[in-house]
Each structure stands twice: as structure tokens, then as C-alpha cells.
Amino acid sequence: MPEPIRVIEGKAVPLKLENVDTDQIIPADFLKILGKKGLGRYCFYRWRYNEDGSLRGDFILNNPRYRDASIIIAGKNFGIGSSRENAVWALQDFGIKCVIAPSFGDIFYVNSMKNMLLCIKLPEEQVKMLQELAEKEDLILRIDLEESTIKFRDRILSFAIDKAVRERFLQGLDEIEITLKHIEKIKKYEESMPSFMIPNPRRFITD
């Protein structure tokens, strides 16, 4: 069962790019690794490393100032593309606890929620404001899920979040167990399924 999360506090890093796809978050080569542990090494791999394995100086997550950042502030459509949940595992293993962006790829958003990586949608102006603040000097954000607020310096921003997502973070629920409380409804549907809906091997393809 996942641990409940009420507050996330950490340094923010501005990733001023739109349409960051999950292929960039973790390249396909590393999807062959069985398991979640250690994937942080491959997070944004081709943006972080040159071909010879040296660090790329032009990528913000390589900047020593942001090495301990745990909150990414990104452009719109973060996490579009492939459904690979490894993108979420890689971000988490890299130390990221929250991503703030104007919008997210649908599948990435759900995958994040299931793994308790918090995705917060904020209006574009607020995202840009936070990016600029984080660029100028160290920006520590305190995100309170119970209050749905982001606190920094003397300011407070509130954010909208699905009740179901919030509950999940606050309670750390095992979703399969919850679903199995509805087992009678599942069985009832199954009993009513007509035989043509069941994919039995009915014939072969012959030349």
C-alpha cells in the first residue's frame, strides 16, 4: 500500500519546454530494464548526457543549482506520447515528487496519480510566473494537498484537483482492493455477456 502524502516541500526547477513527451523522459532503450529501481539514471537521458556519456551543460537539470530540485515546472502538454509508466518511475527515482504544468498528457497524468507523483495543473500565466521566479533565485514550494495550496515566500496559490486524486494521495489507497468491493457488479456484468462477446478460437486461418 502506498504511503499517504499530505505535503510536498522542495526546490522548483523551471523546464521551459512545451510538449515534453515521455520518449524524452525515458528513452525506449531503457524500457527493457525489468523493474522500477534505478531508472532515475536514465531520466531525460539524451538531454542530460552526450553520446560519450559526459553531462550536457545546456540542460537545466544538469545545472548544479537545481540538482536537489524535486518539483518540475514545465510548459504545456507535459508527458504526451507513449503510455510508458516508466516515465513516472524514472522521474520519481530521479527525485521528482511533483510536476506543475498548464496541461498534461492524459495517460501520463493517470500513471502519475497511480504512483503518487503529483501533477498540478495551473493557468499558463501562473506557471510562467513560477518559472521566472525559479530562474532568478532558489524557489522553495510548499504544496499542501489538504488545502490545495502552493505556498512560497509570502504568497499562496490555490489549485484545483480532482477529489479522487486528492483522496488517493491523502489516504494511500490500494485501488484493487477498493474495486473488489464491487465484485457483485462485476460478476453480474459477466453473467450477462452474450457468447459472441467472448473471444473463443472458433476457426483457423487456412491457406
Binding site: 509508466e85 495517460i107 493517470v110 500513471n111 497511480k114 504512483n115 484493487i176 474495486t179 464491487h182 459477466e190
Partner: peptide, 30 residues
């Protein structure tokens, strides 16, 4: 897999899902 939308061409309601959701479907068929 995100390209599961392909199956919509036949009039199926098809969703690309992640691994956690996949585990949930394996266990509950929902």
C-alpha cells in the same frame, strides 16, 4: 500502449493504459 486507439476503427471503445492500470485490469477486469 498509447496507440490502442487504433481499435476504435472497428467501433470498439479502446484505451491506452499504463502498467498500474494494466495490473488493475488483470486483477479485476475493470
Amino acid at each position: 500502449d498509447s496507440h490502442t486507439s487504433t481499435h476504435g476503427a472497428l467501433g470498439a471503445l479502446a484505451f491506452g493504459i499504463g502498467t498500474s492500470e494494466g495490473e488493475h485490469v488483470l486483477a479485476t477486469q475493470t
